[in-house]
Computed example of a mutant assay.
Amino acid sequence: MLYAYAVTDDPGPEGGAPLPRSGILPELGVERIRESGVAVIASPVPAGLLDAEAIAERINDPEWARERVLAHQAVVTALLGTAAVLPLKFGTLFSGTAALRATIETRRTALAEALDQVRGAREWGVQLFVRQPPQAAPHAAAGRAGPGAGAAFFQRKREARAAEQAAAAALDRLAADSHARLARRARAAVMNRPQPAAVHRRPGEMVLNGAYLVAEQDEAAWREDLAALEREAPETGADYALTGPWAPYNFTGGALGAGAGGGVGSG
């Protein structure tokens, strides 16, 4: 069985840059498997040690999952800067070398195109937080309720609902405009689902969770686009947070189409 970390350019017979000594588990080595112009970085795994059932059984153990995810990321990170890298999802497994080679062959064109896209570029993340405007206090009814009190109550509710919808639309426009301006100089860009407050733990609401694949020669200009948005932030109540650079997880083109145990093939 093979646990796969990433797809890279084929370094040729010379073998390329040295690989990390340990993989998803400390006792597992890391090797390159070359096929059809690409190389897959993988660890041979004894049957039953880290198969799909073992991962499914232990993934709910936070400490185990954290250590394994960090180990997976460490291998991917070690590859960055040495070749174009398509990181694979945590838990990408193949039943053996034959199954892996067959999968590479069926996805040869897509893998080549994805590697071309990420070559010489890095992924950056931008999150946009907006502080919530203070909620208007409900109007107190003056004096006793008169014949028109019911109509006035429902009118206030309609006005409050319209104000909420207008505020939500304004946030959507701010997020869309920010994303469009940041995507302008990127090779590719995606808007991921905003994180809830329990995850991001920052003041305000996250309205943009964007990922941007930026060519290294364009990073200075792209960072200036972000700086321009930040200069406008006091007017919009926005707070931009830059993260990265990261391995291009958002731009793998599906890579080998495997993850979380779903990539186990036959062969």
Rank of each mutant, 00 (worst) to 15 (best):
F94G: 09
S95H: 12
S95V: 03
S95Q: 06
G96D: 09
T97P: 13
R101G: 03
R101Q: 09
T103H: 02
E105D: 13
E105H: 13
T106F: 00
R107I: 11
R108F: 02
T109W: 07
A110I: 05
L111T: 04
E113D: 15
E113K: 15
A114C: 02
A114K: 04
L115I: 03
D116V: 06
V118W: 10
G120H: 03
A121W: 02
R122H: 12
R122L: 14
G125C: 10
L128I: 01
F129L: 15
R131S: 14
R131P: 00
Q132M: 07
Q132Y: 03
P134H: 01
Q135T: 09
A141N: 01
A142H: 03
G143L: 05
G143C: 08
R144V: 14
G146Y: 08
P147E: 14
P147N: 11
G148R: 15
G148N: 14
G150M: 10
G150D: 01
G150F: 10
A151I: 11
A152Y: 09
F154I: 08
F154G: 01
F154D: 09
Q155N: 06
R158S: 13
E159F: 04
A160M: 08
A160T: 11
R161C: 02
A162W: 10
A162K: 15
A163R: 12
Q165W: 05
A167D: 07
A169K: 10
D172N: 13
D172T: 15
R173Y: 02
L174A: 07
A176R: 13
D177P: 02
D177Q: 14
A180N: 12
A183M: 02
R184G: 00
R185L: 15
A186F: 03
R187N: 04
R187E: 03
A188T: 07
M191R: 15
M191K: 11
M191C: 12
N192Y: 02
N192M: 09
R193K: 14
R193G: 05
P194D: 10
Q195L: 15
P196N: 06
H200Y: 10
H200S: 11
R202W: 00
P203Y: 08
P203K: 10
G204V: 02
G204S: 10
E205W: 02
M206T: 07
M206R: 09
L208W: 01
L208S: 04
G210V: 04
Y212M: 05
Y212L: 06
L213Y: 11
L213S: 13
L213N: 14
